[in-house]
Simulated assay, not measured.
Amino acid sequence: MRLYDSIGPNPRVVRMAAAEKGISLDAVTVDIMAGANRQSDYVARNPSGNTPALELDDGSIVAEITAIAEYLEEVQPSPPIIGTTATERAQTRMWVRRIDLGYVEPMANGFRATEGRRMFAPRMKLVSEAGGAELKAIAADKLRWLDALMSGDFVCGDRFTLADILLFCFVEFGDQVGQPMPDGLVWLPAWRQRIAGRPSAAA
């Protein structure tokens, strides 16, 4: 398998998931700052132009980070990052969905419309800078919501899952692009330290 990799939180999710499962991926770095992911040779592989993309041994491509993580789980179920029972898998997917839609999307789009505007404006339609600020506020509110709900070591209680990987990679990214975790949180700071201490966090 070959991973079309780059800087940014999305590829980090896949690298971290692979590391947790002990899967070695041959990586090809795509220079997204230079727009290489928008060039015809890459778009032929992945029409969305996003990174990462996983090229399988038969030459087919799997893109989108949750789909890639699901594929890795299918081909190597242990150790699990999604779950070993129907209930565990449903719970993980529920929290991945909540984190993706409620936090990741507004946080990332808020960044693209503000600090990242110079890079992204020529490449995609963006909300206004004022709209970007509102999206940042929505993302911060979702972190407060998560913080108030969580009580165990991980998002899914005592199970480390893809939900933790997704949330961690984007919380870390947010901290780098002007969206640190809001003040007054109780659970998330200690959780972040626990995840940062895992060997896969260096992937």
Rank of each mutant, 00 (worst) to 15 (best):
M1S: 13
L3E: 05
S6C: 04
R12E: 12
A17I: 00
A18Y: 05
A19C: 03
K21F: 08
A27I: 06
V28I: 14
T29C: 08
I32Q: 04
M33W: 09
G35I: 13
A36D: 15
S40T: 14
P47Y: 09
G49L: 02
P52H: 09
A53Q: 03
D58R: 00
I61F: 06
A63S: 14
A69H: 09
E70H: 12
Q76I: 08
P77I: 13
P80W: 11
P80A: 15
P80R: 10
I81R: 04
G83Q: 08
E88F: 12
Q91V: 11
R93T: 05
W95S: 04
W95P: 00
R98Q: 04
I99F: 00
P106C: 05
P106R: 04
A108L: 12
N109L: 13
N109V: 03
T114W: 04
T114D: 06
E115T: 12
M124A: 10
K125C: 05
V127M: 07
A130S: 10
G131N: 06
E134K: 13
K136I: 11
K136A: 15
A139V: 06
A140P: 00
A140N: 01
A148H: 05
S151C: 05
F154M: 01
V155S: 02
V155M: 01
C156H: 02
F160Q: 01
V171N: 03
Q176N: 06
V177N: 03
P182K: 03
D183P: 01
W187D: 01
L188V: 10
A190F: 03
R194Y: 06
P199Y: 14
A202I: 05
A202T: 10
A203Y: 06
